[in-house]
Design a protein around this nucleic acid. Structure first.
Lengths: 233, 233
DNA sequence: CGGCAGTTTGAGCACGATCAAGCACAGTGG
DNA sequence: CCACTGTGCTTGATCGTGCTCAAACTGCCG
């Protein structure tokens, strides 16, 4: 039960599999299968027993926590070429919910089988640990941002990162609904909207629909770094 | 440069090293050395190049983020027998600050050398990945708690976990200063104090100095689960 | 055209932060 | 033995960020 060639080539370029020789790669792709999701499909829930981990091919997956009263916090947005759910392989169950935001294709790897490959291939382990380390770092950063920064700071930081650091003015295209970005940043949609309006009134950005022009990058950077306070009210 | 026998025996019981045979264990302990810290000593800073990862023997280490204006958020409190800083081994630099809260002894393992051991021992890798998975899960949980729960809920949850789930009334001894616990829970010391006072006024707990009796465990559980709201004001 | 979901804007509120004062306690030195 | 000091904790008063509830607006699709 191997994958179509089209997907095999894409998997070849995933960091985790890059350095495997053809035989090892073939083994890794055994017991892998393609999954097609439509927007809103739930992939797994928190606490579900874990049988697979995943790589996104096309589309977007949201990883999120949910509270008793139904509100959500998006932990991570998983774009194509990225792996997720691997930590559950070692814990036996998933730590959060996963749901497709768009029509999404992903490859599912059998945990039990893959654990066997890991046991025989320390190089593969090292790559896996490197991925897990990056995840840990980004989670640590996220906790710092949530507790030490204001909503405005997180929004501006997000815009600057999306605008890939070009020192001068640049435009950002939001590739996701604003309420999704808001949840990712830990604010309510209304608050997100107000923050964008505030930045527009301050002349730091222009925006039309889902396209945002970063006009005054210096000021924005000051806001993100906490050197410049914008009163919300 | 091996360690005194006293410490070797303690290292033997660390999850990461449990299953190694004597030869492997001996190798792992090569290039390990003991470090003695006094309260307030900084072990590493965020961004520092990483040369070691650590296991706490005695004492307590705080892992924290710091913002421009000097305020801190404790990410994790590391008790004896626990490992930390391992993710930096794969990233090259530390993701947060680490500082001793008390007189603390720890063992430092040389990253470069240990990476070599990992490359030759997939079983060791699996153990390491399991540890990293647990860390990821607890970080994911932390993000959920910070964004989906109120301060009161986090405090109550902390007390219940510290009182190890005995269904009936129990006493909790806070083994750390309250301002440290407050930072760990993402609230200011004043707020923490007010929350404790609130719980006392509601008759759910008794407290004298650093000892807290959980009187009404049912109500406390309801508060933690969001089934019961306590107005702060 | 109506319906619906996403977004914006308004008004008011509450949680938790800030600033400030008071208190308990331990350590130090006269 | 008693000030003196410093630190950590508590309590009070006030403020602001961000949330809630509500309404209006936009774009999209049937």
């Amino acid at each position: 039960m191997s994958l179509p060639n089209q997907y095999l080539e894409e998997m070849r370029q995933i960091y985790l599999f890059e350095r495997l020789d053809d035989a090892q790669f073939g083994q890794a792709m055994d017991h892998a299968r393609m999954i097609q999701l439509t927007a809103g499909d739930m992939l797994f829930a928190e606490g579900d027993p874990c049988h697979h981990f995943f790589v996104v091919i096309r589309g977007m997956v949201k990883l999120f926590k949910s509270s008793a009263d139904g509100s959500e916090k998006i932990l991570e947005l998983i774009p194509p070429k990225q792996l997720f759910g691997e930590e559950a392989m070692f814990l036996g169950q998933h730590s959060a919910y996963a749901e497709a935001l768009e029509p999404t294709q992903l490859i599912a790897f059998d945990c039990h089988y893959f654990a066997g490959l890991l046991r025989e291939n320390a190089e593969l382990c090292l790559r896996m640990m490197t991925l897990m380390s990056h995840r840990s770092k980004s989670l640590l950063d996220e906790i710092g941002n949530l507790t030490l920064q204001s909503g405005i700071q997180r929004v501006v930081q997000y815009l600057m990162e999306a605008g890939n650091y070009s020192g001068i003015a640049c435009t950002v295209r939001l590739n996701l609904p604003k309420n999704v970005i808001a949840s990712r940043l830990g604010v309510k949609p209304e608050t997100f909207s107000r923050i964008i309006a505030k930045l527009r009134n301050e002349g730091m950005i222009d925006c039309t629909k889902d396209t945002i022009r970063l006009k005054n990058v210096d000021s924005l950077r000051q806001v993100a770094d906490g050197m410049l306070w914008l009163k919300v009210a």
